[in-house]
Amino acid sequence: MTTTASQTAGPYWHIIDHPEWADLRRGENAAMAGTSITLTGQITDGDGTPCGDAMVEIWQAGPDGAYEAGFHGFGRCASDDQGRFRFTTLKPGPVPGPGNSLQAPHITLAVFARGLMNHVTTRAYFAAEPLNEADPILALVPEARRPTMLARETAPGVWTLDIRLQGADETVFLDI
């Protein structure tokens, strides 16, 4: 069987939006220990115009590096008029990679929007994290473009990763 084709989320996906999903410390996650962080950024198009109608989803491991167990690592946030998204979450731990490798802490981001036939996927790594040097996925990205996947700590606990859909400094998107 062949997969069903992806179609754009369009401009009216907010009908299924739940703004509280941008806070990953909600519900059962509230009691979990870890480092509280904010992940934020601005989404712009090929003209540098902010994308004010995007849906950003994140998927991440818990502080212990485990998926699907304990920490519920899913979040969703609508971009605002300035194209900005903002999640509050706990910093993920390192995750097992291919073979016996270890992946540096990272958060997977998927961006859906009007004009995107399929969502685009990237990762937010944490700048200056020593494990980045040996990360098997970052190693696949040309060095000059790696900074587009490195969130910078722009204020204590606030990590910023801007997403440029097209053009100069275009974000590295992953074919997953």
């Binding site: 997969t3 084709a5 992806s6 179609q7 754009t8 198009d45 090929g46 003209d47 115009t49 994308c51 998927w59 491991a61 998926y67 995750v95 097992p96 990679g97 291919p98 992946q103 990272h106 997977t108 929007a113 009007r114 004009g115 995107l116 036939m117 399929n118 685009v120 996927t121 990762r123 098997p136 996925i137 696949l140 990205v141 473009r145 859909l165 097209q166 053009g167 275009e170 974000t171 590295v172 998107f173 992953l174 074919d175 997953i176």
Partner: peptide
């Protein structure tokens, strides 16, 4: 699947990436 660059749909013009996406092996993520 529809190409990301589908010019007849105007909103794709400034929103599709010019670089091809980088294929990665599937990990737990």
């Amino acid at each position: 699947w529809p190409p990301m660059n589908s010019p007849a749909y105007g909103s794709t013009r400034k929103r599709h990436a010019l670089h091809p996406p980088i294929a990665i092996p599937h990990t737990l993520s």
